[in-house]
Amino acid sequence: MRSITVTMSVTLDGVVQGLGRPDEDTRGGFTHGGWGQRYTDDVMGREMAKGMAKPGDMLFGRRTWQDFITAWGGLSDGNPFTTHMNAATKYVVSRTLEDANAWQNSILLRGDAVDTVADLKAGPGRDLSIIGSASLVRSLHAAGLIDRYTLLIHPLTLGTGARLFEGPAPLTEFDLTDSVTTTKGVIIARYTRR
């Protein structure tokens, strides 16, 4: 059985929307896009590289997968993150995509996210990681399919934007297994489900 680890950047008030660029995700009139860029430093880079050092497959919701194609797909810049992203098998969960041919090594999982991911998780293969894809994470968390979280907790509040958990999340307990604070005040906390 595979495990599923989520890596998510989040503000103190739980916002996960539009971390990387001003135009990344403007749904709902969100105007704070790019809020995470000023918090990047060498410590964060090293910590994120740890997660990419071990081979694994990736799992995406449609919106994040399409956004990542723009950011990572087809690049050959020598960046280890680019190499990892392009080499990994990428499963994209979608009811609307017709195919996953736009990015190498991508496989489309059609149908209900919980059912298709539960089947994928139960089968043989490498562990799965999710970066972003908050809607997918909420669904999988509610179904008890998330095993670990790596949360990059940024020292700011935004007041608006999509949150990691909107509405009640089911009672699930996690143990803190590791934490590191960056030079910019981001707490990188790793949690494993009990």
Rank of each mutant, 00 (worst) to 15 (best):
L164V: 04
F30R: 13
L75I: 10
G14Q: 12
K184E: 11
R63V: 07
R110L: 00
W72Q: 02
R63W: 01
T160N: 09
A88W: 00
R163M: 12
G111Y: 01
S135M: 08
P55Y: 05
K54H: 15
G18M: 06
A162V: 15
W65V: 03
V180T: 06
P22D: 09
Q17T: 14
M52R: 15
R110Y: 01
T82L: 07
G167W: 04
L12H: 11
G78P: 06
W35G: 01
R190S: 09
G56L: 02
L140P: 05
P55V: 13
R95I: 05
D175E: 14
R62H: 03
R138S: 12
G161N: 10
A169V: 14
G29I: 12
R95T: 15
P22G: 11
A169I: 12
G111A: 06
P80Q: 13
L164G: 04
Y39I: 12
V93L: 09
L12Y: 12
I107Q: 12
V92E: 02
T160H: 04
R126T: 04
L152W: 03
Y149P: 04
E24R: 03
T64H: 01
R194G: 03
Y39E: 05
V180L: 09
T177I: 11
T150H: 08
I187C: 13
G45T: 10
T31M: 11
G161E: 10
I107D: 03
K50I: 10
L176I: 15
W65M: 00
S106D: 09
A122W: 01
A71Q: 13
D178M: 04
E166V: 10
E24P: 07
V186R: 00
N101R: 11
L19N: 08
T157A: 15
R27V: 05
T83Q: 04
A122M: 02
G125P: 05
T192L: 08
D119C: 08
F68P: 12
D77K: 02
G125T: 14
L120C: 03
F81A: 12
D41G: 07
